[in-house]
Amino acid sequence: MKILIVEDEPGLQTAMCSFLEKEDYICESANSFQKANEKISLYEYDIILLDITLPDGNGLGLIETVKAHNPMSGLIIISAKNSLDDKINGLDLGADDYLTKPFQLSELNSRIKAVIRRRQFGGSKLIRFNEISVDTDSKSVHVHGQEIRLTKKEYDILLFFIINKNRVLTKAAIAEHLWEDNIDMADNYDFIYIHVNNIRKKIESFGGTDYLKTIYGMGYKFTDR
């Protein structure tokens, strides 16, 4: 999977690239409208991460180039403008998703995976982790082939864990994934503890292993290592 990051802030570019490379993506970057335009016209990418505010132009203007030269690639807009108009505009122009700065790598990862799933026509919508399999089409979860019933939030959390397996996720990160704009809500994270416990119980009751490790009471890690 090849990813192009269009972002002018070098610190952000490096952090994103090194994370994505760890996740086995091939990462390229462009720090200006001009360079990005060139790369998009010349090469093929599976995913393009696009910052709207570029020093020499509005990133939205690149969407046209993407549609012309890279029609198969997934497009995620990354913007500091938490503006609904921009979001609607971007999605109308053909972007697959919109991520507001500051974001977390685990969230970026989960968005990229979602776009890839959506883009792979006829591809498998099944995500497997040992005995657990998640069908993202029907939003159902099976353990050892038996379906377990999860609430919508529990399903979201489990999928987030599996996609970000082997990563430490703080309760705040999980809350943010669940709430997006309404992160103000998360005054305390007790409800995450409740959800996580429910997921554990449900998986174990069908003979599944408890892969959730609590990290110092402040975060979780979904891992079989």
């Binding site: 610190g11 952000l12 500091a80 700065k101 500051p102 977390q104 790598l105």
Partner: peptide, 8 residues
């Protein structure tokens, strides 16, 4: 943008 760098 810089806050994003810090957070990442």
């Amino acid at each position: 943008t810089p806050l994003s760098v810090v957070l990442l």
